[in-house]
């Protein structure tokens, strides 16, 4: 059996918040122009990043539950020294999973998410029931596999979409060379067709989850907790 320390979880959470906000700062086309990216590489990169964030979300929730249930460590006062970390990890974990998976999921998103969730649950239960061969590194493999399978699914989807468009373009009569070149360029703009469409879109309902201000607040809370842990305290040490 193993567990993580609150410091590790809060450090991971802080890095995650930094990643989310940095992503929002540097990839801000939609916010600025109202149009989304159409470059296949950028879109695949974004989906891989979302898979990573979904994994981070599950990791944080799993780690928080582990801290609560593990008999391996004592805190003297759980409320004073671990509760704030646990609450923050669960909160950010839920935000990440909802924001990256359930707001507007495609079949690809759901497939990868449930595969990762199944793997994490299976390994967690196995490690709790005393299977010593299930180490923390196996849990990390689930994240790597999730990101990798996002790439693979995108390549498959891309290939099918590309083939479909090429077939349609080939059937189009009377195009000159300039039009053909333009058509070829268009073929490579986000050709994912089959699994790329959202099954549902509840982004209006989950506006708060996606709100930058909320992530700024989360970063502030995580940074404060991290600094306090470095100083031997915690956000709720006054309890």
């Amino acid at each position: 059996m193993w567990t993580y320390s609150p410091t590790l979880c809060i450090a991971v959470g802080t890095v995650t918040c930094v990643l989310v906000l940095t992503g929002q700062v540097w990839f801000d086309k939609q916010r600025r122009t109202g149009k989304d990216y159409d470059c296949a590489i950028v879109l695949t990169g974004r989906r891989m990043m979302r898979a990573l964030l979904a994994f981070m979300g599950m990791f944080l929730i799993e780690a928080a539950v582990r801290i609560c249930l593990s008999p391996l460590i004592g805190f003297g006062s759980f409320a004073r020294y671990a509760l704030a970390s646990v609450i923050l990890c669960i909160l950010l974990g839920i935000l990440l999973v909802i924001g990256t998976v359930f707001v507007a999921p495609t079949w690809k998103t759901l497939t990868v998410f449930f595969a990762m969730l199944g793997a994490i649950l299976a390994m967690s239960i196995a490690s709790y029931t005393g299977a010593d061969q299930v180490g923390y590194e196996h849990l990390l493999y689930a994240g790597v596999a999730g990101i990798g399978s996002t790439l693979v699914l995108d390549i498959v989807d891309f290939s099918i979409g590309l083939a479909k468009r090429m077939k349609l373009a080939g059937e189009k009569p009377g195009t000159n060379s300039k039009e053909k070149s333009h058509e070829t360029a268009r073929l490579f703009k986000n050709p994912g067709e089959i699994m790329a469409r959202p099954i549902w879109d509840t982004s209006r309902a989950f506006k708060l989850v996606l709100d930058t201000r909320l992530h700024v607040v989360m970063l502030a809370l995580f940074s404060a907790e991290l600094v306090l842990l470095f100083e031997g305290l915690s956000l709720l040490f006054w309890l």
Partner: peptide
């Protein structure tokens, strides 16, 4: 006594009590 505590805690033989955090 001062520095960041072990981030990964694993079950070990002979250990009767283990804590995490300043003390």
């Amino acid at each position: 006594g001062a520095t960041i505590q072990a981030t990964m805690i694993e079950d070990e033989p002979y250990v009767q009590k283990r804590t995490n955090g300043a003390g």
